[in-house]
């Protein structure tokens, strides 16, 4: 187990290094630096050109690529992600992310819980009564969910519930000045969580259905039934316990998808989270910020996978890692 863990950790470290090289290298290709717009603002063009040159030197942007990467990497390893160029000029990127991280984790966490809370019962119903009316309805629903362009769904919800009906706030996380108002918080959360959960519910319920179907065919289920254990108990204890294993893996693997969804959802609902921050960074060429968030999300993904593996081992004693 320890050897397995060590090997995985090493592999993951190499993976993260690989990602950092790719991301750093590719962003280097984008023309333009943080001070380009100064060339337009000044009344003296020559003075502006001299100024831009000097500021680039101060940030080390005149250095060759490998040197810049090395400086960045060594600093990043000790938690210094550099300063933001355009989104929050001069601010440490780490602090910027910190201010948004909580909001994103709240959104992602709630969506994961919410989607599982829906997907689990409907997946089980489908599996227990396959080819029933319910099963067909649920299947149809999940197909709709899988085929729905999320952003379009989000925008349509915004129009209906905020603009036409005026029931829900049109965006943001809280009403300023109402930081402790729990109702206000919940109202702001409804649409982003629903939109982010939609695709998850669709995929998860399909997955739980098939996983459960597989389990219910097993001998021990039949044995349990033969012994006179009530059907509901068989499903919920024996069946679910075994069917949940692949679901755990799925949750680990879904983190990248969830984060991807967060970028779109946060952008639509102006949710002050990392996804929107990332997109802002991309659109404003704030490379230190983009690099840091990419690395952080890669870290989340890699960590999620590792946790899923470990959880698997904990839940299923048959599994041993070498």
């Amino acid at each position: 187990m320890r050897a397995f863990l060590l090997r995985r950790l090493l592999q993951n470290a190499i993976l993260l290094l690989f990602i950092s090289v790719i991301v750093y290298g590719i962003l280097y290709l984008v023309p333009g630096g943080p001070f380009d717009q100064l060339n337009f603002g000044a009344t003296s063009a020559t003075a502006a050109a001299a100024q831009v040159k000097r500021l680039n030197e101060l940030l080390g942007l005149d250095r060759p690529l490998y040197e810049r990467y090395w400086t960045w990497l060594t600093k990043a390893l000790v938690g210094d992600w550099g300063m933001s160029w355009t989104v929050a000029f001069g601010q440490p990127v780490g602090r910027l992310i910190e201010s948004r991280l909580g909001n994103t984790l709240l959104l992602m966490g709630l969506s994961a819980v919410f989607s599982l809370a829906i997907a689990l019962p409907i997946g089980i119903i489908s599996a227990v009564r396959p080819y029933s009316v319910w099963d067909y309805l649920i299947t149809a629903f999940s197909f709709f969910g899988l085929s729905m362009p999320t952003f379009w769904f989000g925008v349509m919800m915004l129009i209906i519930f905020s603009v036409v009906l005026g029931w829900l706030p049109a965006g943001g996380a809280i009403t300023p000045g109402k930081a402790n108002d729990i109702v206000d918080r919940i109202l702001h959360l409804i649409m982003p969580v629903v939109v982010l959960s939609l695709v998850q519910v669709a995929g998860q319920s399909r997955f739980i259905r098939s996983s459960m179907l597989e389990v219910l065919k097993q001998d021990y289920i039949r044995t349990a039934r033969a012994k006179g254990v009530p059907w509901a108990r068989v499903v919920l204890t024996h069946g679910l316990r075994n069917a949940i294993l692949p679901v755990i893996t799925l949750l680990g693997l879904e983190i990248p998808q969830l984060f991807g969804g967060a970028i779109i959802t946060e952008t639509i609902f102006t949710w002050p989270g990392m996804g929107r921050l990332f997109f802002e960074g991309i659109s404003k060429n704030d490379w230190p910020l983009v690099q840091a968030i990419t690395m952080l999300s890669a870290f989340l993904v890699v960590g999620g996978n590792l946790l899923a593996d470990l959880a698997y081992a904990v839940v299923d004693p048959r599994i041993r890692y070498e």
Binding site: I159, G166, G171, T175, F269
Partner: peptide
């Protein structure tokens, strides 16, 4: 007494919040 500058990045959200007096 108070001025709050609220960041609303989306034009549609701006219009909606203007309409609802937010």
């Amino acid at each position: 007494p108070n001025l709050i500058v609220k960041i609303v990045t989306d034009t549609n959200a701006i219009l909606a919040q203007l309409a609802t007096s937010e």
